[in-house]
């Protein structure tokens, strides 16, 4: 095993010793910083999420809990798992709620919905980024339930992908998931079809102010 490693490294070194041009600086002339107003940024995010077939709800910081409660009622959700660290003031008044810590009561695969926050959202690509910190749950938590409800605060929305990477700088070794719409596939006739193995429904609650 150690021999294979040495052999491969030796081959690599031999290969890269063969003639190279001068080493040039890495060009990074792509757009780092967006130029949209805060309002336009949020609108872009919502538009793109809608294009992915996500449902959008808007709330003020005071009525997040009510919005989520209504949403669950509307969707006739019977069980909802909520991760540790989820803001208490946003918890819906809802009987079927199961805190992450009490998952032994019911297997995750039988729970219908999950409610989380996120770390950053990217307008340009319509992506929600979770680093699975407090309020965001472990990775499986947002994977097995069929409905993922994600709360995005207005100020978490950045415009470009590089801006999102700047926001993630402190979390480079955390598990990170970019979520851009509900699970989908383009494998049949190259057409995006919603809902394969991951959550088939993605509801985003945008919190303004």
């Amino acid at each position: 095993m150690a021999e294979t490693r040495e052999l491969m490294l030796a081959r690599i070194r031999e290969a890269i010793a063969v003639q190279h041009g001068p080493e040039l600086p890495l060009p990074r002339d792509y757009e780092r910083q967006g130029s949209l107003s805060a309002e336009a940024r949020v609108e872009t995010l919502l538009d793109r999420l809608r294009e992915y077939d996500a449902q959008i709800y808007e709330a003020s910081s005071e009525n997040v809990a009510t919005t989520v409660t209504n949403l669950c009622r509307q969707r006739q959700v019977k069980s909802l798992v909520v991760p540790e660290g989820f803001p208490a003031e946003w918890l819906p008044a809802f009987g079927g709620m199961i805190p992450e810590g009490e998952l032994d009561r019911k297997p995750l695969s039988e729970i219908e919905a999950v409610l989380t926050t996120c770390t950053v959202a990217i307008a340009h690509t319509g992506s929600l980024v979770l680093r699975h910190g407090p309020g965001e749950g472990t990775r499986r938590l947002t994977l097995l339930p069929d409905l993922h409800i994600c709360i995005v605060r207005e100020e978490q929305v950045v415009e470009t992908v590089p801006e999102a990477f700047d926001a993630l700088r402190e979390y480079v070794t955390a598990p990170i998931t970019f979520i851009s719409g509900p699970s989908a596939t383009a494998d049949i006739e190259m057409t995006r079809i919603r809902g394969v193995h991951g959550p088939r429904y993605l509801d985003v609650v945008l919190v303004r102010g």
């Binding site: 990217i122 319509g126 990775r139 955390a174 598990p175 990170i176 970019f178 851009s180 699970s183 190259m190």
Partner: peptide, 13 residues
């Protein structure tokens, strides 16, 4: 796939 972003990217360490 001609999408702005595919549904899931996982990065973990």
């Amino acid at each position: 796939t001609g999408e702005r972003m595919n549904p899931y990217n996982s990065i973990w360490t």
